[in-house]
């Protein structure tokens, strides 16, 4: 690893700590300062957002996501699991072992499984069918936490990196794929729960914010592209690598819904809706998120 990259990562974890501290503070007590900005009608950028932008510029070329890609690449080739085989025969939709360009063409329908599968769901499928891992074990702790990095997160990051600078082209050829888009759209607009939220409550209008966090309008092509970009993403808040599986989980939490099962069809269909809406844009690869 280059020393520049190492320094950047050290700086990043420092920043992550600051963020975590600030986030904790935010929940505990209302911010006292900023009375001077009172006359401004629009929200001023909070310090976390400002730090993030500065950091984003420095890291543009040298993303920490690459470290996770490298880890995933090793894992992909290693003989692992009860069956002691690698994932090199895993078919991500473009034929056994073809990784290049696969991420931007998922979710898609996989006839062998009879299912719509996003990248993570497919990788879990390969880990189970080829390597002999147990699905229930993989679903037990699927999200990064502290120093714990789930295998599928590293693997998805590697696979996603192999689609860097390629066009998003989520297929709609098969009837199952077109149905998945429609089902995803229904899930997106389904308002329920104690706070009457749907995805559309927060992601259905242009230019809206929750506090200072910008909310992409996922019903538009441009907003869906924003939602697709940068995932899997190294998240400054907490300093963890996360995939879209995690993002969907945390948004359903904020929606006050029960918890969606890990790597289920509901998530695959939601990601189909988002991915197809983003079709045609260039995917810039795994990135960083605030």
């Amino acid at each position: 690893m280059s020393s520049i990259k190492l320094r950047a990562v050290v700086a990043l974890s420092g920043l992550a700590l600051v963020c975590a501290a600030q986030a904790a503070q935010k929940e505990a007590a209302p911010p006292k300062k900023a009375a001077a900005h009172a006359k401004k009608p629009a929200a001023a950028k909070d310090p976390v957002a400002a730090d993030f932008e500065k950091f984003h510029e420095i890291m543009e070329e040298d993303s920490p996501a690459e470290l996770f890609e490298a880890k995933g690449a090793e894992m992909w080739k290693a003989k692992r699991g009860p069956n002691h085989v690698s994932l090199e025969k895993c078919n991500l939709g473009l034929g056994p072992g073809v990784v290049k360009g696969a991420y931007v063409q998922m979710p898609r329908y996989f006839a062998d499984a009879g299912q719509m599968m996003d990248a993570e769901r497919r990788i879990v499928y390969c880990m189970v069918t080829l390597q002999g891992f147990k699905e229930a074990d993989l679903a037990k702790k699927p999200f990064s936490k502290g120093s714990y990095l789930p295998d599928p997160v590293a693997l998805v990051t590697y696979v996603a990196g192999q689609s860097r600078n390629m066009k998003i082209a989520v297929p709609q050829k098969l009837p199952q794929e077109r149905a998945a888009y429609k089902l995803g759209e229904e899930v997106f607009n389904y308002r329920a729960g104690p706070w009457d939220f749907s995805c559309a409550s927060c992601h259905g209008e242009d230019g809206k914010r929750i506090r200072t966090q910008n909310l992409p309008n996922i019903t538009t092509k441009e907003g869906a592209n924003r939602a697709f970009q940068g995932w899997p993403g190294y998240r400054m808040t907490g300093g963890l690598m996360h995939t879209l599986q995690w993002r969907m989980n945390d948004c359903f939490r904020q929606q006050r819904f029960p918890e969606p099962g890990y790597a289920t069809e509901t998530i695959a269909d939601l990601l189909t809706y988002m991915g197809v809406n983003a079709n045609g844009y260039l995917y810039k690869g795994p990135g960083i998120k605030r």
Partner: peptide
């Protein structure tokens, strides 16, 4: 599609903490 999406969610979700499965049912509004 609407009916299918609802039954898919009811199959794929589980209760967690205070967030029970009945939250997936719509009220009249």
């Amino acid at each position: 599609y609407r009916a299918q999406a609802i039954s898919m969610m009811k199959r794929d979700f589980h209760a967690k903490g205070i967030a029970h499965m009945d939250r997936l049912n719509e009220d009249a509004v």
